[in-house]
Design a protein around this nucleic acid. Structure first.
Length: 934
DNA sequence: CTGACCAAAGTAGCTTTGCGGCCT
DNA sequence: AAGGCCGCTTTGCTACTTTGGTCA
């Protein structure tokens, strides 16, 4: 708030109050939102006032808010982790259900008549598809009946239940304090450690209701019926229930399975314990009557200690309420998945799985044991689908909203769930998936009107007027019904509106005579708009309009009230401009007839120079600091001028490029002159003052650093002999390859011409050395396929043979390295430079020596001109293009010799160094340096 | 006991045309 | 010397959502 150029006299020290003495001009007193105190009767021109900021939030409040936030984050995270762990648990189980031995055991215990019933259903026997479907459903019915009534005894314990965050947290705390059970075996959890555990339950013909459903799914798969294991994930809710049903849920007992435990179980091997939570609804009698499966330890102690008689403590609960696990079997005849509840013996009734449904029994045992939020069906191949929509009663009105929607944290949760589902979704679609999608979608459509106010919010089919957004209106209302006295309209009647300006941004214009469909308070986002509004308001007040209430209203229009904006066609090359002197081009359709858009930067200058009429094209806006800045992309001109302008533009671009090139060339020359002069001075000094001491001097560190050494035992020692040697470290035309390719013939020709002046020798030599410092224009680069730049006559020309050789090499290297121009890659120019002064001797056997700058130093390092090449010590002799030459040895033995012979080197691209190689080189160098020092 | 409602906090998205200093 | 270019700075408000609590 202190942004009016006022000067601070005090440093804000107190958290709660900030008193600041400031000097402000008198006009500032209009800022009435500040509490102003005239502390001294100051002179008019310099009033001293004290501003009081709003008292800040107290520390404790802040802390509380932070804690609340942290809690929320924690709860959300726990919810997510728990959900994923439960899903992982279900997937592991689902995999176990495919076990052949388990199938065999199950089949061996299943009556043949039931098995045969399925075998009978076949196209060849029963051609009628509907009949097949009915027969299949009947067969499943009988199978389920047998399973639930005869075969499998459901224990009232050991299955997964839903618990609140607080319950779990209390449990964790009690465990942490050591008072609670730590060993998961010591509670009511039914432990299924693997397929063997499942098979035990088959043989015992009893288990938790979760196990019952899982085994039934396995049986279906054994019978060659496509069967899914369906699970309703009972994850810890992310919302706090602190203020809700009091101690009710907590008094019903705690189940010590934490998200962390689930996580552990998931991360462990498949055979690791996958914990089920126990229902704490177990009464003592039930617990004793039913044989509890003991896989490792006795649980009786835990049960007797923990079980609490309660209203829900009845085995009825587990056998009559919606399960957490159940089965879906695929009816091939109907191409449909039929829900099967093998505990209650229900087939094809999708409504009975939602625990919030209103039938009396489940109502009695409803929350908090089962909450339907995520229902996942896992198929035999391990992939899953989100089938919540099939089972949840008010999916669109409630559950989908709970899964997350719209914006904010909820939207993040929705995305998260979508990503979870994506992770288990089959990567390819089956036709039955499509059918199922349709089915689930239809369920949503036929769900019926929501029963709560919140259910109408964002409902895909219905809408209440109260939930309309600021820019929405119900057009051509067709009332579908009433909800508590409010009219319910179809969502399709809702149209979204825009202001006239916003329609213009879309390239549309309000049809004349149309009245706004809605008036809303205008928003002022930019300062200029705000001022505009204030002005309008004042004017309205002056004119005595009382209705304004200090609000500027603005009309909103529907799409149907707009037409495509068609600007007037241009005449005589004159482009129509708006009040800002440019042209609006938010969408391509806003381009006037007969005009073209040239979206290049800097093209306006050209048009201006050519004296064509043009307008800069505004394609959008950027917003900064409450101000809008137009985004300008090129210009709009008359179509007949387009070519002229573009040609001129290209020309000017080339010109600019040329200028830049010349400038760089200049810089290059300067640098080289400086270097060469420096070297000459150095040389002179050394010649003049060199003494015996000089020979003992340590090698110049700089050179040491820039050179890659080679340990060639045959040629110990080595000296900086020539300018080439010295210059070499800079010889890193890193961009050369790319540059050479990007340079067109035109430019190379220009360049060649440019360098054939008297300085060209120097220039030519300099250029590549400087590429490393240029940003890649590639001037002076000869084309890969072109002849090297023409050379003055006084140079020894290249023979045709040499040229042919050079090209052959070039082709070779291009082939091998075209995709990776390494930093040390040397292009054609380097080659031409380095071979420039070649004598008639065979090029490859020449001793590389450069200019007159011979620098006899005492450094014992061997500095071969080919040092840039990566070469291992042992293989240097076999290198193909720098064959061991006698002259090398000569140089080695005559370190101080001034050799003016040109370098015969032909640098070729080399393969990029591998990391290992770089390391190796580094080590070699280190070793060599050490050896030198000794 | 659920859902309507409220307050608080947090968040998304709408907004729609300069200025000053430095370089050439 | 003057015109032109570049970079500045990361907004602020409103409506809406979510959350947590109360109450009918």
């Amino acid at each position: 708030m202190m942004n009016n150029g006022v000067s601070f006299a005090d440093e804000p020290s107190d958290e709660e109050f900030e008193w600041e003495e400031v000097h402000v001009p008198e006009e500032l007193s209009i800022y009435q939102e500040f509490e102003l105190e005239l502390s001294t009767p100051a002179p008019r021109e310099n009033i001293e006032i004290t501003l009081q900021t709003q008292p800040k939030k107290s520390d404790s409040k802040k802390k509380a808010a932070a804690a609340l936030h942290a809690q929320r984050v924690l709860r959300t995270t726990c919810h997510k982790i728990h959900t994923i762990c439960l899903l992982g648990n279900a997937r592991v189980r689902n995999k176990w259900l495919n076990d052949d031995l388990l199938h065999a055991r199950l089949l061996s215990l299943t009556p043949m008549s039931l098995q045969n019933a399925f075998a009978m259903i076949h196209k060849s026997r029963i051609p009628d598809q509907n009949k097949r479907g009915r027969l299949f459903e009947n067969a499943v019915n009988r199978l389920v009946e047998w399973w639930s009534h005869t075969f499998f005894t459901v224990l009232p314990t050991g299955h997964i239940v839903n618990r609140t965050f607080e319950e779990v947290q209390r449990e964790i705390e009690s465990q942490a304090s050591g008072s609670g059970p730590v060993d998961p075996d010591s509670n009511d959890t039914e432990c299924i450690r693997g397929v063997n555990s499942l098979m035990k339950h088959v043989l015992m013909q009893c288990g938790s209701r979760d196990t019952s459903s899982q085994l039934f799914t396995a049986l279906c798969r054994a019978l060659d019926i496509p069967a899914r294991l369906v699970v309703s994930l009972q994850s810890v809710p992310w919302r706090s229930d602190a203020g809700k049903h009091g101690g009710g849920s907590s008094s019903k007992g705690k189940v010590p399975v934490t998200p962390a435990e689930y996580e552990n179980s998931r991360e462990g091997s498949e055979e690791s314990e996958v914990a089920n939570t126990s229902a704490s609804v177990l009464s003592k009698q039930n617990g004793k009557a039913a044989p509890v499966i003991k896989l490792r330890k006795t649980k009786s102690r835990a049960i007797s200690r923990r079980s609490t008689p309660s209203a829900t403590g009845s085995s009825l609960y587990v056998t009559c309420t919606p399960p957490v696990f159940w089965t879906e079997v695929f009816s091939r005849a109907d191409s449909r998945w039929l829900p099967v509840d093998p505990i209650r013996g229900i087939v094809n009734k999708r409504q009975v799985f939602d625990p919030s449904s209103t039938d009396t029994l489940s109502k009695a045992y409803r929350v908090p044991y089962n909450r339907m939020l995520y229902v996942v069906a896992l198929e035999e191949d391990g992939f899953g689908r989100d089938v919540t929509a099939r089972y949840a009663r008010d999916y669109t009105a409630k559950v989908s909203k709970a899964q997350g929607l719209g914006a904010g944290p909820a939207s993040a949760r929705k995305q998260w769930w979508a990503s979870v589902v994506q992770a288990i979704t089959r990567p390819y679609r089956l036709s039955r998936d499509e059918l199922e999608d349709d089915e689930l979608h239809n369920h949503q459509l036929t769900e019926g009107m929501p029963t709560t106010l919140a259910g109408f919010k964002d409902h895909p089919l219905y809408v209440l007027a109260r939930h309309l957004k600021r820019d929405e209106v119900i057009d051509s209302p067709t009332e579908l019904g009433k909800f508590r006295g409010e009219s319910v309209y179809p969502r399709s009647c809702v149209v979204s509106l825009k202001t006239a300006e916003n329609w213009m941004r879309q390239g549309r214009i309000i049809r004349s005579g149309c009245q706004p469909m809605k008036m809303v308070k205008q928003r002022a986002v930019t300062i200029s708009r705000q001022r505009e509004m204030e002005l309008a308001l004042e004017r309205a007040k002056e004119e005595g309009h009382s209705g304004g209430d200090g609000e500027v209203m603005q009309g909103l229009y529907a799409f149907s009230q707009t037409d495509l904006y068609q600007p007037d066609p241009i005449r005589d090359g004159i482009i129509p401009k708006n009040e800002f002197g440019n042209i609006d081009l938010y969408v391509p359709s806003m381009l006037p007839l007969g005009a073209v858009h040239i979206p290049f930067k800097g093209v306006a200058k050209i048009a201006k120079k050519l004296e064509f009429d043009y307008a800069e094209a505004v394609t959008g806006f950027e917003f900064k600091k409450r101000r809008a800045f137009p985004v300008i992309e090129g210009i709009v001109v008359a179509a007949e001028n387009e070519n002229t302008i573009i040609e001129a533009y290209i020309e000017s671009e080339q010109d600019a490029e040329e200028r830049a090139r010349a400038k760089r060339f200049d810089q290059v020359c300067k640098r080289w002159v400086r270097l060469i002069q420096g070297l000459r001075i150095r040389d002179r000094l050394q010649k003049q003052y060199a003494s015996n001491q000089a020979a003992e001097q340590a090698p110049d560190e700089h050179w040491q650093d820039t050179q890659i050494l080679e340990a060639d035992e045959e040629e110990p020692g080595g000296f900086l002999v020539t300018a080439d040697d010295i210059v070499q470290p800079f010889h890193l035309p890193s961009n050369m390859h790319k540059l050479a390719l990007s340079t067109d013939d035109n430019q190379s020709v220009n360049v060649k011409q440019a360098v054939t002046d008297e300085n060209s020798i120097l220039m030519e030599e300099m250029l590549p050395h400087n590429w490393g410092t240029q940003d890649g224009d590639g001037y002076m680069v000869t084309d890969d396929n072109s002849v090297p730049p023409s050379r003055p006559i006084d140079l020894v020309p290249k023979t045709m043979h040499e040229l042919a050789k050079y090209h052959a090499r070039l082709e070779e290297s291009k082939k091998s390295e075209s995709s990776f121009p390494g930093p040390a890659e040397a292009g054609p120019s380097s080659t031409s430079i380095n071979t420039r002064k070649r004598t008639a001797r065979p090029s490859n056997s020449q001793q590389p020596t450069g200019d007159k700058v011979s620098v006899p130093t005492s450094r014992p390092k061997r500095t071969r001109t080919s040092r840039k090449r990566t070469r291992r010590p042992g293989e240097s002799v076999s290198d193909d293009d720098a064959k061991p030459s006698p002259s090398k040895r000569v140089r080695g033995r005559n370190p101080g010799a001034v050799d003016t012979a040109p370098s015969p080197r032909i640098l070729r691209p080399r393969a990029p160094k591998s990391a290992a190689r770089v390391q190796e080189e580094h080590e070699t160098e280190e070793a060599y340096r050490q050896a030198v020092e000794e």
